[in-house]
Amino acid sequence: MLGGLIEANVQGRPEKRRDFDTLKARVGIKVEDIEEAVTLDFRGGRLLVSNGLKRDRRITIRTDADTVMMLSNLAIGPFGMPVYFDTVGRGIVGKLVTGGLKIDGMLANLATLNQVTRVFSVR
């Protein structure tokens, strides 16, 4: 589903396509409440989706299914920055603070995380 979401997002959205074409990173997503994990291997204009968490991930997101949906609904504001002050954004910040959302590699890869967020967001 997540691969399909990114594919649909990128099609017909030039600003997301540009991010997708330049994004090179291996990102893991572990959806803990349904015990599903996926590795998204962004290869500069190509995406390889694998089940499970593969090695050498730059970023790993661990959360529940509802928060994955929230991340997909995160608004993108000026300069391509995710908006953390609306309802969805505040919800995500709240999850980060309370441990409901864990992002390994976040601080060292903020620019990449923002790029992934833009590609992932339907907004």
Partner: peptide, 9 residues
């Protein structure tokens, strides 16, 4: 369209 469905979760 998956993005549309996600927008209306």
């Amino acid at each position: 369209d998956l993005p549309t469905i996600v927008r209306f979760t």
